[in-house]
Write a protein that binds this DNA or RNA. Structure first.
Lengths: 229, 229
DNA sequence: CCTTCTCTCTTACGCTGTAAGACAGACTAT
DNA sequence: ATAGTCTGTCTTACAGCGTAAGAGAGAAGG
């Protein structure tokens, strides 16, 4: 039981969430884990919200945003995506929190600027570069949320899915059943990799052919249409 | 105050969350909203978790997954993405819940099968079709989460961002500052539209050139590498 | 009239986040 | 050495939470 500190508390909180799920995390239980009363934690943190913020920072701070020398932008983006996904999957209990807070928070701003500069140096505008980073980030969070599945702390993902699948193999949903049977619904790493390659290809094409400003894409027109139905 | 029912309760819950945020939603307050004691709700719902599940279903059930006659698959996927994003943005308070539960839930399975069949008819395998749907869905959820920003109920997104931006216009993060100043961080609809077009292009390319099974992509290799560092 | 079903209520328990402030020990200043 | 402040932990207390258990009112059917 090392000396108490904000860091020690966050470490214990991550450990607790990994083991019991975020729903069970309370100030009293976390205090007990550290051999201390609940109110003692309030000497290091203003409130529970700050604890959760810290948890997210703790988990995402391991994401490797720093560009290597000579690294091409597609490799950089791919590495960021893979690194972010790995960080999130390492502590899936924290995922529901991550989804609710900005991923590129204050603590990682220097690294973000570094990544932007790599993109900028190869012809992106500042805005395109940030858009690219945002697209990679939001997709990765969304995808990882879906892979991690049910989160609150009950890990009944498997029995749930099994029951679900065996229930529908009938004639009502032949394609869905076929896709699930062939692993289409569960091979997350592969689907993630495919999508990231797609996005990177698209990002490159967007930079080459135009800025995406001014000329409306098909999807933009669809969005505008939907806004006033 | 129409007669009480599961539907009436869910309606009231959506209204409550839209107004006060999900953090403030409690069985007692929701009961009060309906002129009834908290325990009365338990005649219609087994527990609060079921209420939240119902909330997600309620919000996502308006997503239009049904293929029109003669609609091409890229238009179908684009329409699904746009429709899902609109449904989510209509009730941003529910978003944190959506992110934690499967979006394509049991209630929409018929429509999913219909969408799959459109893709299947134009040369996708069942698995590729489901992957495509999943990619569109997870990206849309991830992106919408990021646009809706801070969710718990405090809508301090603007002051927060303003303070954040004005603080960093200095020389430390010139690219980030330039991108934000030009609206790169906030023009969500445009960035979403761009990314969806990218994904659709990529999905089409994936179908044309190969299945994405067997041949490893760059990203897949990166994922495997990261798994055992 | 009696029973059963449907719906709503009251009461109670253990849990939560946290405000307010008491207290002990260590350091600092006179 | 004495007095004062600072640091870290504790106790107590309060309002609110989800919900288990069961009482009771009113309608429906025999």
């Amino acid at each position: 039981m090392a000396k108490l500190s904000r860091e020690a508390i966050l470490d214990a909180a991550v450990r607790f969430v990994d083991e019991h799920g975020i729903a069970k995390l309370s100030m009293r239980k976390l205090g007990a884990e550290l051999g201390v009363e609940a109110m003692t934690l309030y000497y290091y943190l203003p409130n529970k919200e700050a604890l959760l913020d810290g948890l997210v920072d703790h988990v995402t701070s391991s994401v490797d945003l720093v560009a290597r020398g000579g690294e091409q932008w597609p490799d950089l983006l791919r590495r960021i995506a893979v690194s972010l996904r790995a960080a999130l999957l390492a502590h899936p209990g924290v995922l529901p929190l991550v989804s609710t807070r900005p991923v590129l928070s204050g603590s990682s701003l220097d690294a973000v600027e570094g990544a932007l500069s790599v993109l900028y140096a190869t012809g992106f505008t500042a805005r395109q570069a940030l858009d690219a980073l945002n697209i990679i980030g939001t997709f990765t969070v969304g995808h990882t949320l879906a892979e991690a599945g049910r989160t609150p702390g009950h890990e009944d993902a498997d029995p749930d899915l099994d029951a679900f699948v065996s229930e529908l193999d009938g004639a009502r949903h032949p394609l869905f059943a076929a896709a699930v049977r062939s692993g289409g619904g569960t091979n997350h790493a592969e689907r993630f990799a495919l999508a990231i390659d797609m996005l990177i290809t698209g990002i490159g094409a967007g930079r080459a052919t135009g800025t995406g400003h001014g000329r409306a894409t098909n999807a933009e027109r669809a969005v505008s249409r939907a806004r006033r139905p």
